[in-house]
Deep mutational scan, measured.
Amino acid sequence: PEDEKKAKEALKRANGDEDKAKEILRKLGVDPDRAEELLRRLR
């Protein structure tokens, strides 16, 4: 869904750096736990 698209985009923008991607997602208003879960799934 929408969050998943955001997560993929964030990872791309962060050049695969998960911590940076998490930060980006947090700024986009995605719940930190949700962000973590999404990134884990994309790994």
Rank of each mutant, 00 (worst) to 15 (best):
E18L: 14
A14M: 05
N15M: 12
D31V: 05
D19N: 13
E36R: 04
L39A: 01
G16M: 05
L25G: 00
A14N: 02
K5S: 09
K12S: 10
K20I: 14
A7R: 01
K22T: 06
K8Q: 09
E36L: 06
G29T: 00
A10V: 04
P1K: 14
D17L: 05
P1S: 15
D33S: 12
A14G: 04
L11M: 10
P32D: 12
D31A: 12
G16W: 09
L39M: 07
G16K: 03
R26P: 01
E23Q: 08
P1Q: 14
D19H: 12
R13Q: 15
R13W: 12
E36K: 06
L39Y: 01
L28I: 08
E37V: 05
N15Y: 09
E2V: 09
K22S: 06
K8P: 01
K27S: 13
R34N: 07
L28F: 06
R40K: 14
L42R: 02
L25W: 00
R13V: 12
I24S: 03
N15D: 11
N15V: 05
L28P: 00
R26N: 09
A10Y: 00
L25Q: 00
R43I: 15
K12Y: 08
D33Y: 07
A10M: 02
I24K: 01
D33M: 12
L25Y: 00
K20L: 13
K6E: 08
K8W: 10
E4C: 07
D3R: 04
E2P: 10
I24C: 05
E18N: 08
L11P: 01
D19T: 14
K5A: 13
R40Y: 03
L11E: 01
V30W: 13
G29W: 00
K6D: 07
K22N: 06
A21H: 00
K22L: 14
E37W: 02
A35T: 04
L42G: 03
E2W: 10
E9H: 08
L39T: 01
G16L: 04
V30A: 02
R40V: 10
D3T: 06
K8L: 14
E37M: 04
V30Y: 15
V30I: 15
R43P: 05
L28E: 11
K6C: 09
P1T: 14
K6T: 11
D33V: 12
I24W: 05
A10K: 01
K22I: 11
N15F: 13
E9I: 10
E9N: 08
E23T: 06
D17Q: 06
D17Y: 05
K22W: 07
A14K: 01
K12P: 01
D31F: 05
K22F: 11
K20M: 13
P32F: 08
R41G: 11
R40P: 04
P32T: 10
P32V: 09
L42D: 03
R41V: 06
L28V: 06
E37Y: 03
L39G: 00
E9M: 05
R26L: 15
K27N: 13
